[in-house]
Simulated assay, not measured.
Amino acid sequence: MSQFDRTADAGAEADTERADPPTPRTESRMLPAEVFSVLGNDTRVDILRALLELGADDDPVSFTDLFERVDIDDSANFSYHLRKLTGHFVKQGDDGYEFRSPGRKVVSAIFTGTLTERAQLGFFPASGNCYDCGGDLHGWYVDDTLTIGCTDCGAVQVSYPFPSGGLDDRSTEDLLAAFHHYVRHHYCLAADGVCPECTGSVETTLVRDPDDSALDVAVEHVCERCNYRLQSTLGVTLLDAAPVLVFFAERDVDLSTEPFWHFDWCVSDTRTDVVSEDPLRVELALPCAGDELRVRVDETGAVADTAVVEGLTQ
């Protein structure tokens, strides 16, 4: 659901009594220390990797096939380690073994390099121009973060954590395309109330004059479950809003594929105006092909109103 859709439903929700949230059913819970203890063994990690290689995402894997794939000679020892994984990380059925969600996430983290690799990538050209001075852009990757900045004035357009596995087998052009989709997806998920880390509920608010930021107004997303936090410009959270998508699509611009740092309203608040302090209301002016979409949002970052002004120059 887009941010615009949530706004459209707001009136309907106000007229109906909000139902109590369902009580989640918890089969079991493993303490963090137990998780590290279980996974702190090479054989168990090899078992999870073998499940992936043998196609456990599609069909259960038999004990025999799994044992033959893992480099271990003692079947009793193998069974011991497999039992340690079964229940929380691996599910055992009549046809064999398959992943539970936590086990699949462990394998994903290993293959993306999140847990195992430290990579660096020196300066390389990036498409677009600096929002501040119009200069050329370049990117670099260090400390698990991809950054795009200006070669002339040094202004950072975007800096965001990105798993090092995303660098494998990609040209810098393909890397930037993947980075665009990854970051856009995270912010759009958060704007829709879903934590990109744990899928918990996210509360979104506008923040006036945020600390450690040059922005006058920022959007802050905080997960109520894992406390994951994201802070950004208001513009980048509107990339999935229906009126914004339609406005640009009608002018032959696809916001799903055009790198978001190409738009100054996504990486700065240069086109953001505070129209009311209490309650906080902010308006963005989004130019395209000589026209302008004016988007007004409330204190939660939800779209409150839009208007198209035609015949303006950028």
Rank of each mutant, 00 (worst) to 15 (best):
R251F: 03
S232L: 05
T233W: 03
A241D: 07
L230G: 12
S213E: 08
L234F: 05
D212R: 10
A218M: 08
W265T: 13
A241L: 09
D254M: 09
L206R: 15
V236Y: 03
A241V: 09
D254F: 09
G235Y: 03
F260V: 15
L245K: 09
G235V: 10
S232T: 15
V219G: 00
W265H: 13
P196Q: 09
R251W: 12
E250V: 03
R225I: 01
C223W: 02
G235T: 10
C198F: 05
P243C: 08
W265I: 14
D240I: 07
T237E: 00
V246R: 13
L230K: 02
E220Q: 15
A218K: 05
P243E: 08
V246L: 07
C266K: 12
D211S: 13
P210R: 14
L234S: 04
R251L: 09
H262L: 13
V244W: 04
E224V: 04
A249V: 04
V219A: 07
V202N: 02
V236N: 01
C195K: 01
V236E: 00
V244E: 04
A218D: 02
R225A: 11
D209E: 11
D264I: 14
Q231W: 00
D254G: 10
R208Q: 14
Q231Y: 01
L239F: 11
A218E: 03
T199P: 12
E220Y: 00
F248A: 02
L239Y: 07
S268Y: 12
L215H: 08
T204Y: 01
P243R: 06
D192M: 12
T233E: 01
A241F: 03
V253P: 03
T205M: 08
D209T: 11
L234H: 04
D212P: 03
R251P: 00
T270Y: 10
W261D: 05
C195G: 09
E258C: 14
L239K: 05
R225D: 13
C198G: 07
P259H: 15
S232K: 10
S268H: 14
F247N: 00
A242L: 09
P196G: 13
D264G: 12
